[in-house]
Simulated scan of single mutants.
Amino acid sequence: MQPRKTDLARTALQAHRAPLDMRQRRLLILCDGQRSIADLTGLMGREAPAMVIQLIQGGYLETGAGASPAPSSVPKTTPQPTPLPPASPAPGVQVERRRSLVAARIYLLGILEMQRNPMAAALFRDLQQARAEEDVVKVLQAALQALPGMTSDGYCERVRLRLLEALPTEHCDAFAATA
């Protein structure tokens, strides 16, 4: 079985408004009709088959001969996304999410770099130069507090949620107040 994206998946990946978590988005990107479930499991981990099933049930993926044509020949319709529950592993499988302060830092550096704002540039430099763990956390918090002044509330919330997915759990409590 080689899952392939549907029109709904392409729309969701372009719009960034679908109810998908970061791992589900990564899996959708990897599902190109060329990779098998075994390949996806090697790339994404043991929870990949369960996530594929969830995405198929949500209408984001399809398999077999009914797969849609290439994106250039897809009719332009706007399907309504089906809300998906967060990706969960098969029963009895313990999944350890990779969390690190470095990953959170790199993610927020990328977000700040995209903002065309002097405050974002200053926070970018501060985050690059921060070396001690507590300094990095302080700059991450300052950046999250400054971001609403640079961009939309919805975008800020998505950034905050993605950052919380990447942060080590011991630092997540410090970011609860920035919600």
Rank of each mutant, 00 (worst) to 15 (best):
P3E: 07
P3S: 10
T11F: 01
L13Y: 03
Q14G: 02
Q14W: 03
A18P: 01
A18D: 06
M22T: 15
R23V: 11
R23D: 08
Q24C: 03
Q24H: 08
R25S: 00
R25I: 10
L28P: 02
C31D: 00
D32T: 10
Q34H: 10
S36D: 12
A38I: 14
A38W: 11
A38E: 15
T41V: 11
I53R: 11
L55Y: 05
G59E: 00
G59Y: 04
Y60T: 02
S68F: 09
S68K: 08
P69S: 06
S72Y: 07
V74P: 01
T82H: 15
P83N: 08
L84Q: 13
S88C: 13
A90H: 12
P91N: 04
Q94T: 10
E96I: 13
R97K: 14
S100Q: 09
L101Q: 08
R105P: 09
Y107Q: 13
E113F: 14
M114G: 09
R116C: 11
A130K: 14
R131S: 10
E133A: 15
V136N: 02
V136G: 00
K138L: 07
V139F: 11
A142I: 03
A142H: 11
A146N: 11
L147E: 11
L147A: 07
S152F: 12
E157N: 12
E157H: 14
E157G: 13
E157A: 14
R158C: 06
R160G: 14
R160C: 04
L161W: 01
L161I: 04
L163R: 07
L163K: 09
L167I: 11
C172N: 10
A174V: 12
A177D: 15
A179W: 10
